[in-house]
């Protein structure tokens, strides 16, 4: 076991610091050391997308990255999506269009959709499907999710 190192980063606008082994996965650091359990672990090999967060504004898998690699970075996790006590338009739209059932992929799905709408504010249905194909959902058949992202895109434009 290697000695612990200090990791300093900004999460959801707040400067955070923790000590962990250099080999610690970023998602484990978020969940165990920072208490941010909203980001979920689904496969630990970068396919299911449940652990997706934004790192310096871009969607990334926190399960195939080490915490030390995020040192100095600015992170946005599901816990930071609400603003001023109000749901983000994407969160609202997921509720409105039944874009979630068990909710386990939902944090990764929301962060992925956020990234999609940042780069493509007016996606077609096919583009939405392609965009969110980075996250696996086993409950919804994706129907409600696609409708929700369409609705949120309209609202956010």
């Amino acid at each position: 076991m290697a000695d612990a190192v200090t990791v300093r980063l900004t999460v959801n606008g707040v400067e955070r610091e923790g000590r962990c082994e250099p080999r610690k996965l970023l998602v484990d650091f978020l969940r165990e050391d920072l208490g941010l359990t909203g980001t979920h672990v689904g496969c630990e090999h970068g396919i299911c997308g449940a652990c997706t967060i934004l790192i310096d504004g871009e969607a990334a898998r926190s399960c195939i990255m080490l915490a030390v690699q995020a040192d100095g970075a600015e992170l946005l996790t599901i816990e930071g999506l609400m603003r001023d006590g109000k749901l983000h338009p994407l969160q609202e739209a997921f509720r409105e269009h039944h874009g979630l059932q068990c909710g386990f992929c939902t944090p990764g799905m929301l962060m992925t959709a956020l990234d999609l709408l940042r780069t493509n504010p007016s996606p077609t249905e096919a583009e939405i499907r392609e965009g969110i194909s980075a996250v696996l959902c086993r409950c919804t058949g994706y129907h409600g999710i696609v409708r929700a992202v369409e609705a949120a895109a309209r609202k956010m434009r």
């Binding site: 359990t37 909203g38 816990e79 999506l81 997921f94 509720r95 409105e96």
Partner: peptide, 20 residues
């Protein structure tokens, strides 16, 4: 009717086995 469960699940406040 919109789901009661959604508020917590959409904001990262669900309680799954690995969470607490």
């Amino acid at each position: 009717v919109k789901r009661v469960e959604d508020a917590r699940l959409l904001t990262g406040r669900g309680t799954y086995i690995d969470d607490h």
